[in-house]
Amino acid sequence: MRVFAPYLASLLEYAEYHNLDSNTLIDIIPKHNIDLCDPNEMIEAKTYLSVFDKAIEITNSDYFGLNFGTYLNLDALGLVLEISLNTSSIEQGVYILQQFLKTKFPLVTATVIKDQNHFILQLESAVKHKKIRRHLLDLVLAIIFRELKLMIPKHFTPQIRLPFLEKKCYSDTLKTKITYGDDYQLVLPLDIIKTEINKSKIKEIELLLPQFLVMLNKGSESKNILSNQIRHMTLHMCSPEIPNFEQVQKQFPYSKRTIQRKLTNEGTSFRSILIDIKKELSQYLANEKHLKTKDVAYILGYSESSAYLHAVKSWGKN
């Protein structure tokens, strides 16, 4: 069994946000001169699992897989674009997701189950180590949930069922209701699965993704500075909505107060970082002549055009 090599590169990158010495993890990887960023490369699944297991052990986090899956937002935006190029049907999009797991991350499989009212995607893993299996399922759950949410009409959200009672972290991280079930399941109404992929959301992602990548490259040479780490994490987590402080803070091994103190010592704050991101996106979107002010306001998370215009005015005073 083999895994898409860039997914290991993403894991190594994410580990750095937890102050893990990347060399500790790299030393686990057999020396075969593989370029982990090469989209044509695959690695042995056991290699990925060894690094994944070590990262879980060092961070000692019960939700490493879930948070890592949330960090992969930017990769997910690219995936949903790829799906939209191959089909306009949500049901076909789900089958593409199944194939994506089969060919690139076969450590987890997704099985479709239909009943009278529901279309269910059940996630399973043959990995025997219980703790690693749960983190893998958490990781894929976060990715697939986001893909489905991007594909379906905006007024609907996939329901999640989990085989345990401690649900708060999942509901807080994924911003959705979690119910108890026998397996990891994502549930959609049967009639929704027959509709078209949300084209307006896809166009929004297609517009923003190149700019996200440009913005991520800024300051990449100073990753050891927390304010740059916060900026990078925030951009990675855009879906394309921008995450809030609580969502970003959970990705770091620091309390809210510690992050605020460290950012103050660097002469900034999360609010300032957020404003800078919104300013850059606003300037980029302003060059798109076909977009109306209300469109830009919506993309940047403002409920009304007036709120967006007020924010732009306040930026000019800073």
Rank of each mutant, 00 (worst) to 15 (best):
Ile113Phe: 07
Ala76Arg: 05
Asp115Asn: 14
Ala142Asp: 03
Leu66Lys: 06
Ser125Thr: 11
Ile58Leu: 14
Lys102Trp: 05
Ser89Cys: 06
Lys130Gly: 05
Asn117Met: 10
Glu82Thr: 11
Leu66Trp: 00
Asp115Ala: 11
Ile143Asp: 04
Phe156Gly: 11
Ser84Val: 01
Leu150Asp: 09
Ser125Leu: 08
Leu121Thr: 05
Ser125Pro: 02
Asp62Ile: 06
Val112Met: 12
Arg161Leu: 15
Gly69Asn: 07
Leu148Met: 10
Phe64Tyr: 11
Ala110Met: 13
His118Thr: 12
Lys128Ile: 10
Phe68Thr: 07
Val112His: 14
Val127Thr: 12
Tyr63Lys: 10
Val127Arg: 06
Val108Phe: 00
His129Pro: 00
Thr173Ser: 15
Phe68Trp: 11
Phe119Leu: 07
Ser84Ile: 00
Ser125Asn: 06
Leu79Ala: 11
Tyr95Gly: 02
Asp75Met: 12
Asp172Ile: 09
Leu66Asn: 01
Asn67Pro: 02
Leu97Asn: 04
Gln92Phe: 08
Lys128Thr: 11
Phe105Ile: 03
Lys131Leu: 13
Asn67Cys: 13
Ile90Cys: 03
Lys154Gly: 09
Lys149Asp: 14
Ile160Gln: 05
Lys114Arg: 12
Arg146Met: 14
Leu74Pro: 00
Glu91Ser: 08
Leu121Asp: 01
Cys169Leu: 15
Val94Arg: 04
Leu77His: 00
Gln116His: 12
Tyr63His: 14
Phe64Cys: 06
Asn86Ala: 10
Asn60Gln: 11
Phe68Val: 02
Leu162Ser: 06
Leu123Phe: 07
Lys168Ala: 15
His129Ser: 14
